[in-house]
Computed example of a mutant assay.
Amino acid sequence: MGGTEHVLTERVGATLILTLNRPEAKNAFSPAMLVGLYDGWLAADDDDGIRSVVLTGAGGVFCAGMDLKALAGDGMADDTHRDRMKADPDLHWKALLRHHRPRKPVIAAVEGPCVAGGTEILQGTDIRVAGESATFGLFEVRRGLFPLGGSTVRLQRQIPRTHALEMLLTGRPYSAHEAERIGLIGHVVPDGGARARALEIAEQINACGPLAIEAVKASVYESAELTETDGLAHELAHGWPVFGTDDAKEGAKAFAEKRPPVYRRA
């Protein structure tokens, strides 16, 4: 399943778990982490046996954002990751879900700090769970920087604009409960329980028809900025073909026979 020294990969049933694994640096992004993330997204896209992805962090930390020294190559023993990034100048944006949207649902399981680039990659995920001591925020303006991971575009589309602007312009930290209140995350659980809750949600997704799941996700994102009329036409284009699949027939048959469906992506 791949991975790098800074991204651990694990398979639990039909769920791929990507774990940011640089806790000594609060899981700050490094070339090895970005390459590992991008390879993980591609693996999920390419493997029909994977129906969902959980993104989490090691050591009770989600991600503290970008590590500028690591990205410059300081102290790296292996230049392989840097060479990958040079060969694909867009790789870091794809890894951070700015220029890539996985076709499978992505669930974030957040513990501890999820700030700066951590809050930015969070906005590329679909469902978000956090431990009650998790913290969020876009700190870039406090350092005279700009949040280039997509936040000035995405955040106002995901939470009310007044909250988006406050987060972007103050650079202050947000607690998990405040992040839930403004709609940035969907669930707050006891500390240490985010991964387990994310896997529970993943299992619910995995039990559904995979073709239907992927069509629903695509329709939601692709119609988000369309007019209602255009969006409804787009929905038909994604949804109507699902009804002609063997999986749709299996779903109805399983319901009638009072048994769990067996979906085959057909």
Rank of each mutant, 00 (worst) to 15 (best):
H6V: 00
H6P: 00
H6I: 00
H6A: 11
H6T: 01
H6Y: 04
H6N: 14
H6Q: 11
H6L: 00
V7D: 03
V7N: 04
V7K: 07
L8H: 13
L8F: 06
L8S: 11
L8G: 07
L8W: 07
T9V: 06
T9R: 15
T9Y: 03
E10T: 13
E10G: 02
E10W: 07
E10I: 01
E10P: 01
R11E: 04
R11Y: 02
R11H: 03
V12R: 15
V12T: 14
G13Y: 07
G13R: 12
G13P: 02
A14H: 15
A14P: 01
A14K: 15
A14T: 11
A14M: 09
A14Q: 15
A14W: 03
T15S: 13
T15E: 06
T15C: 11
T15D: 06
T15H: 10
T15R: 12
T15Q: 09
T15W: 09
L16D: 07
L16A: 06
L16I: 03
I17D: 04
I17A: 04
I17V: 15
I17H: 07
I17K: 14
I17T: 10
L18A: 04
L18W: 04
L18D: 03
T19S: 12
T19E: 08
T19I: 06
T19C: 01
T19R: 15
L20Q: 09
L20K: 12
L20R: 15
N21Y: 09
N21L: 01
N21F: 05
R22G: 04
R22N: 11
R22A: 02
R22T: 00
P23E: 14
P23H: 08
P23R: 13
P23D: 10
P23N: 06
P23L: 03
P23V: 03
E24H: 13
E24R: 14
E24D: 15
E24Q: 14
E24A: 14
E24N: 13
A25K: 15
A25Q: 12
A25I: 08
A25Y: 12
A25S: 14
A25E: 11
A25D: 13
K26D: 10
K26W: 09
K26L: 11
K26P: 00
N27W: 10
N27G: 05
N27P: 05
N27V: 01
A28F: 00
A28D: 01
F29S: 03
F29D: 02
F29L: 13
F29W: 14
F29Q: 01
S30L: 05
S30A: 14
S30H: 12
S30C: 08
S30I: 00
P31Y: 07
P31A: 09
P31L: 05
P31H: 10
A32F: 03
A32H: 13
A32V: 03
M33K: 05
M33A: 14
M33N: 04
M33E: 09
M33S: 12
L34I: 13
L34R: 10
L34V: 11
L34H: 06
V35A: 12
V35L: 08
V35T: 13
V35I: 10
V35C: 15
G36R: 12
G36C: 08
G36S: 06
G36M: 07
